[in-house]
Nucleic acid binder design. Structure first.
Lengths: 173, 173
DNA sequence: GGGCGATGTTGGCGGCGACAACATCGAGGA
DNA sequence: TCCTCGATGTTGTCGCCGCCAACATCGCCC
């Protein structure tokens, strides 16, 4: 019979928990993301996550850090200021829940060094291609604002963010 | 003795709850904002808030809507595109927790008509002074991005957001 | 002046985050 | 080869929370 009992030890629980957490985050937002629900989704007991994450907040921080890693990789892969802008907006559009978690208030008071580091890494990718530091910051703020307004549903459907992008940010001289 | 018992009815509970909620929000972020804690802070029983707000989410939405109202008023009072940019950044800098709530993921899936309306009112104030709609949206996105990065601690301390603002957004012709 | 709706209280249920104690497994030294 | 030990997962529990139900108290209007 194939009723082979699940082994006592999962074997690869940490990534499984992160994957389950991201699915729950997409499905129900951060409010619906309980540690116990994540554990249920991964098929383990309600306390198993504590062997891999110190708290619910630590799990969210790990998820956000992973998101910053992915965003940084996408930025590094894209070419030029405009290309990075496109990549940034695409990331936010494809993973709005994760993007909101990365920049959201859930992790605000918290100081998770790995999270800060991951964020800094992503931003470093942006800074590399701009004419100077102020321009890079302006570009980042603009793209971040566009992404946030779109993710939050405040952006009118009939306006292309990319067109707006080209209005404000001058190309590298 | 002046041990005059508190009257059975508070008399003005709704604004008191909102004020207590904002204080708790500033103190501990949205995660620390429980309906029961708000009730305790206002000196009423744990169920009294339900006479004024249908749910915790409704209270948060009301708080955010109030924030949008204040932001819109500040924008309408400010003159010119640059003045509005300053006012927007000042609001976000003075009330970072409220600003994050207004745009945060807490209220994401939720459709509170009053909240949407309040947000639209604030944005209408911004749109009134720009050269055209695309420029207004670009200015809004840029200022919103600046405010968000600052509120989340991603903005370098040695760069003036206002200077960056003037880089990107052309003045009204 | 008396009823009634608005407002506030107590009580309770299920879910959650976190802690403690116990169970199970695999690896590595005797 | 076997046995111990640390890593990983489980059950049990506590207090807090959101929300529902039932009851208490007040002011207003007939």
């Amino acid at each position: 019979m194939s009723t082979s009992k699940e082994p006592y030890h999962h074997g690869d629980l940490r990534p499984a928990l992160l994957a389950a957490a991201e699915a729950l985050l997409v499905a129900g937002g951060p409010a619906g993301l309980s540690l116990r629900a994540v554990a249920r989704a991964a098929g383990v007991s309600h306390n198993a996550p504590y062997r891999h994450f110190a708290s619910r907040e630590a799990l969210l921080a790990a998820l956000a850090a992973e998101g910053f890693g992915r965003l940084g990789a996408a930025l590094r892969q894209a070419g030029g200021l405009a290309g990075q802008g496109r990549a940034y907006l695409a990331f936010a559009a494809e993973h709005p829940a994760l993007y909101r978690l990365m920049f959201g208030a859930e992790l605000q008071g918290t100081s998770h060094p790995a999270l800060r580091e991951a964020a800094a890494g992503a931003f470093a990718a942006l800074a590399g291609v701009a004419a100077d530091r102020s321009t890079a910051l302006a570009a980042w703020a603009l793209v971040h604002g566009l992404a946030g307004l779109r993710a939050d549903g405040h952006w009118p459907a009939d306006v292309d963010p990319l067109a707006v992008l080209s209005i404000a940010i001058p190309a590298k001289p």
